[in-house]
């Protein structure tokens, strides 16, 4: 493994970009296009993803959101947090609404960017069809899925993005259950198989990486997609001061992998020098606290297997 040092802060890097939060903050524009006063829980990872996305996009953007936490907490009539044009229509149609916005802009001869910011439910489950249509048609939109791994807005029900072993209100642990018994849907690869020019994963724990990816996504012609992990203190069960830490831990344990797929070519962005044991990530959250050692080692084995394959191929 080759390392370089960040020219600005000196951090040791295994990738081309600095993952340090300090530097990230320094490099971002001061202008806030998402106003304070929104109703997100304290420590909400998703609202950070929204705020940073707007720092990456600037003002010349139209935001489309499906129903979900971020829509609800930012638009309580007659207030709004959005200083850019914004539309919310329904839960399952953001891909289609964004297509309409983009086609209208095209007719009007405008270069304004179209940015969807949707939850995992609105993206990988009920919104999958409309999104698939938009991707397949090659609409010029950027779609960010903020993944808090459940339907948080309606009270933490499972989604197709809920990870193996997690407890939600519809996948409770009980005498016959250890919680969610299926692995997470591999949404970034589902998107990539639509032959789109740019797909990336990110974590709010590594904000600079995320912001750079949003910028890149917005700059490509055609559909682009970013799947960003956004820890949710309310749904996952951790102290609201720990969101960034958990976002990092997900990556550092290897449970969440940062990669890009550019024109079909996949590139791992960050290889943790020494992967931390998954138990550190799991035990930090109420939703995994019930897991037996058996299940935990099963999760560890699966993460090891995936990384072995990755390391072999790089």
């Amino acid at each position: 493994m080759l390392f370089v040092r960040c020219k600005e802060c000196g951090a040791k890097l295994s990738a081309s970009r600095c993952f340090e939060f300090k530097l990230a903050v320094n490099n971002l524009p001061d202008e806030e296009l998402l106003s304070y006063g929104h109703r997100a829980c304290s420590g909400c990872g998703a609202i950070i993803a929204v705020r940073l996305a707007l720092k990456a996009s600037g003002r010349d953007v139209i935001v489309v959101q499906p129903t979900g936490c971020m829509e609800v907490v930012t638009t309580p009539y007659p207030e709004t947090s959005w200083k850019v044009p914004y539309i919310h229509v329904a839960f399952e149609n953001a891909g289609a609404v964004a297509s309409g916005v983009w086609r209208a802009l095209k007719v009007l001869g405008k270069k304004t960017k179209v940015l969807v910011i949707g939850g995992d439910g609105g993206t990988v489950d009920i919104g999958l069809q409309a999104l698939s249509g938009a991707l397949e048609r090659g609409e010029n939109i950027t779609y960010i899925c903020y993944d808090n791994e459940a339907y948080m807005n309606t009270g933490v029900q499972r989604s197709g993005a809920t990870p193996f072993g997690a407890v939600t209100t519809t996948s409770p642990a009980g005498k016959l259950s250890f919680g969610e018994d299926r692995p997470k849907k591999d949404m970034p690869h589902i998107v990539a198989s639509h032959n789109v020019p740019y797909v990336a994963t990110a974590s709010v724990g590594y904000p600079m990486d995320y912001v750079e990816k949003v910028k890149k996504a917005l700059s490509v012609e055609g559909p682009s997609y970013i799947h960003v992990l956004t820890p949710c203190p309310t749904g996952w069960g951790f102290d609201s001061s720990k969101s960034i830490e958990l976002g990092k831990l997900a990556v550092d344990t290897g449970m969440w992998i940062l990669y890009e797929i550019e024109n079909g070519v996949e590139k791992i962005n960050y290889i943790p020098t020494k992967r931390k044991p998954v138990v550190e990530y799991l035990k930090a959250q109420r939703r995994f606290r019930h897991l037996s050692d058996d299940i935990i080692s099963k999760i560890q084995e699966e993460v090891d297997r995936v990384w072995e394959r990755i390391l072999k191929s790089t």
Binding site: I62, V64, I87, V89, A90, E92, N93, G95, A96, V97, A98, S99, G100, V101, W102, R103, A104, L105, K106, V107, L108, Q129, A130, S132, G133, E136, R137
Partner: peptide, 27 residues
């Protein structure tokens, strides 16, 4: 001179019109 959006369902067809109409064009 129009964009013809070949959607994957009627739900999306009307949703495209909603997005486009809100952006200021006739649908």
């Amino acid at each position: 001179d129009a964009e013809f959006v070949r959607v994957e369902s009627e739900h999306s067809a009307l949703s495209v019109c909603v997005g486009a109409s809100a952006t200021g064009v006739r649908t």
